[in-house]
Design a protein around this nucleic acid. Sequence first.
DNA 1: GACATGACGTAAT
DNA 2: TATTACGCCATGT
Length: 110
Amino acid sequence: MSDTFERIRRVVVKIPRGKVMTYGDVARAAGLPGAARAVGYAMRALGRTVPWQRVLGRKNPRSAHITIVDARGKAEQRRLLEKEGVKFDPRGAVPLATFGWIPRLPKRLR
DNA sequence: GACATGACGTAAT
DNA sequence: TATTACGCCATGT
């Protein structure tokens, strides 16, 4: 397991129930700003050992809502999130203002 | 080591 | 709003 994956894992496992983060935010919180792609790759590798369903994607820049990216596990992901209380709007998106979660970051990384 | 690919994000056009 | 281009990181060929 690479050091990068370990850092990503440490962030993901802290996401509280009923909250979600974007790939980009996870990367930033892990000290890897801009490495959203690596987070996606890591999520696939980590699989069900972490609360993978709480990581969604920001479809458009500056968008206030995020959507499920993983096409293969999308149905299960949505079911798990709704069970935790996360609400999806008619377009299948989640409002960040309500369910988004940003962890406290070391000052160095902010 | 070069190159392509992928559960991504952002800025420019 | 849609498309394009590029940056980022790990893997596989």
